[in-house]
Design a protein around this nucleic acid. Sequence first.
DNA 1: CCTGTAAACTTGTATATACATGTTTCTCCT
DNA 2: AGGAGAAACATGTATATACAAGTTTACAGG
Lengths: 238, 238
Amino acid sequence: MKTNKFIAVYHEWADMINTGEIAPLSKLPSENELAQKHETSRETIRKALQMLAENGYIQKIRGKGSVVLDVSKLSFPVSGLVSFQELAKSMGKETRTIVHEIQVVKPDERLQQSLHAKCSDEVWKVLRVREIEGEKVILDKDFFMRSFVPSLTKEICEGSIYEYLENDLGLPISFAKKEIVVEEATEEDKSVLDLDGFTHIVVVKNTVYLEDASLFQYTESRHRLDKFRFVDFARRRS
Amino acid sequence: MKTNKFIAVYHEWADMINTGEIAPLSKLPSENELAQKHETSRETIRKALQMLAENGYIQKIRGKGSVVLDVSKLSFPVSGLVSFQELAKSMGKETRTIVHEIQVVKPDERLQQSLHAKCSDEVWKVLRVREIEGEKVILDKDFFMRSFVPSLTKEICEGSIYEYLENDLGLPISFAKKEIVVEEATEEDKSVLDLDGFTHIVVVKNTVYLEDASLFQYTESRHRLDKFRFVDFARRRS
DNA sequence: CCTGTAAACTTGTATATACATGTTTCTCCT
DNA sequence: AGGAGAAACATGTATATACAAGTTTACAGG
């Protein structure tokens, strides 16, 4: 066994809920039953169930059991750390990525702040336009610390940079701070996107960290107003 | 003891991180040290630390310890399930709530879908305008199932409805599905808000559930583009 | 002095037990 | 028949132990 038990149990049930094999509002077996079924202890089951609850798959109700939530509305979110590529794949839409610029630059003042970088550091700058069904509606500006990413090619950027970083470079992407605001469209936005008369742009700013809490990427995703959607599941934190 | 140990430990350290008493990038004591210090077991400490990690306070690094993250940028989010009132209090801004409408209505078709209600059900409709520093910039439309909320007054709506629901009615608000999109401003938006030339509106749609997974509220929060900001902390879910 | 390895830390996983507390069911007494 | 209460079952909390696996430190040998 190389994979952990509680993660295996988590995926098993998460998949069943995702595919609809288990209907929303139906109940999961009790923790003791699950422990027997998976030949493990109740505590291990509880860890798996807690993960399912955190990610919006189930609701645990004391004394009663675990109820399956309706996850279908959540299924194509810009939520969490999902990348454009992973997202486009899951929906059926025809998409295309146009790489405008790949360059190693010295960070300007604003970028130094976002990336906690010094002016002597080197930073990859990648500019990509996302086309959905023939319309250029998203402009992605990515900045990586070069110390983490030695080389970068057009082919990689046309695919999924995240896949390259995680699978090929083995970078353990762990968490991000996300900010969503609306800004006036810049000249750059107007020149590379099909803005279609829209004067403003939804800007999703992401600051991405690795498992050891080191900051390594800053991303700005600039969406045409009508092509933006953010779906999330949130638990109340007292 | 009425409060749980691991929640007490969680709050103790969360407060210290929030106030800056513990600086970002500094390290927490080891789990064993914490267990001794709080006179509890390591497993209890681990539960508290896991909550801190989930909510963006710390990053746990295997073999090394727990690093405190910079939570200052996260401190005034529209994140999670925080209400307008709780938010306004934490920032210093001068705010006012204007109650436009409190009414019991029969749900129309669209609302029936959002609230999973039948046309025979009764629903509270509350319309409020939020004024920030003299400008009317947010329109909140709330719909509650009347079966959960027997009575509702103007005074309650001018304060925090959430406080009333949780403290007075004892409703255990647990989780929500959130959707953020941009729409064209409606005639209603134009008439009650100071739109200042903006033609579009950021709409935050919230579907709110109680601890027993019963759906009880649908909320639309309509923000003027320049007064909208969403900040979030997200962990990568493999 | 440098290097390699072992020891002493750290967090992660798995399991067991005991008891607390909320929910449902059934049974027995009125 | 109806209601009270006990029993059975659900999840929640707290604790203990053992071992796995990553990181740092210290020490011994070259």
